[in-house]
Design a protein around this nucleic acid. Sequence first.
DNA 1: CATAGGGCTGAATCGTGATTCACTTGGCCA
DNA 2: TGGCCAAGTGAATCACGATTCAGCCCTATG
Lengths: 221, 221
Amino acid sequence: MAYRETGKVREHKAAQRELLLATGEALVREGGFAALTVQALAARAGMGVGTVYRYFRAKDELATEVFRRATEREVAAVAAALAGQPDAVASLRAAIGCFARRALRAPRLAWGLIAEPVDPAVDAERLRYRAAYAELFEQVIAAGLRAGELPPQPTRLAAAALVGALAEALVGPLADHQADEPVIHELTLFCLRATGARLAEQENDHDQTDGFAPGRARGHA
Amino acid sequence: MAYRETGKVREHKAAQRELLLATGEALVREGGFAALTVQALAARAGMGVGTVYRYFRAKDELATEVFRRATEREVAAVAAALAGQPDAVASLRAAIGCFARRALRAPRLAWGLIAEPVDPAVDAERLRYRAAYAELFEQVIAAGLRAGELPPQPTRLAAAALVGALAEALVGPLADHQADEPVIHELTLFCLRATGARLAEQENDHDQTDGFAPGRARGHA
DNA sequence: CATAGGGCTGAATCGTGATTCACTTGGCCA
DNA sequence: TGGCCAAGTGAATCACGATTCAGCCCTATG
């Protein structure tokens, strides 16, 4: 007998796979999924093209995995922002603010997750991504309905429309890229009005629960 | 001397070009811009691949032209629906209804114009398309502001968010594809609330100005 | 009808990026 | 150390659609 996979090797393989996924996300953050080519990935990760295929059956699989991870992180952040909010309006504010800040901070990634055209395989994942967001918003709206905070409305439709409004205003081609906070503030008001929340007309919008540490640099596209 | 382009030939060339554009749009209506390949186009139009290049310098040019025409028709329809509306709320209702009905009637096309990833050349055109829509909505909102019908808000942002909400709810992956009219009705309410329109709470939403003849078949995706 | 100047054709070519594979390298055990 | 096996390599190959072009065909004149 001459060879058996040892712990060190196993660790190394896991690290390689991890490296590929991290590098893949970095590429996506810089240039969207279009920039995620096997050649570029291998070069950036410091390995040969063929090696990539030792860790992923096909590029689809890799891209899907990169998408899924980023997705899960984003959705989890929004879900976390929702936790413990006292009412539906506060929840909506928190969710919108969280979504918006993260999207504005990583616009290419957000665009990749939300809108960029990629393969069918990734598109299937995107469906789940949007659905997950819509689900979050839907539940908040439903809760608001039950509590009488929001007027009757089809929750699914409203949730979809919210996601669309946020996406378009933030990462769509119409995004103005002005100072972030005022945009977020106005967009929040827009969404709250859309769902029929009764606004107190004084907007103390000091919620910043977005899962990020407060100070950091961010480049504009 | 032996040949000079005669009227008949000129007409034929114009017809050929027209045929290509129309066929191109048909392909897009069926399968989005992804289905608009030179091969498919030539086959469908009943001519050789090379002939296509006699009428268009490159595929980009053709795709852009197909996009532009469809775009102009859509935007014109919405603009027409706006004409002569008494106030901002009526205008919003008309614009939203028109946009929505047309999008639901030709979902693939709408998706192609709004969201499908295509070449950079076409994307530039898309920018103009969205901007044109946003422009329409923006002006309505601005008028509403001046008239005191709508509360203060950044018109550009609100317009973008409206376009996004409509697009996502109607042609996005979250679209539910239920009966059209109820969806349009609810979406209209959503948008009116979003812009802060004071709703009379009785919704007589009998506006159907969408530029189409009333009865026709439409397939669900 | 003969001839000239396009128009039309579609197989061949190109470009771009994914995928393969014959080979080299390095870790594991006796 | 020697032998074995998996990991790594990257040039070659594929796939797919845009683009070209050498040759065929049609229309308009004299």
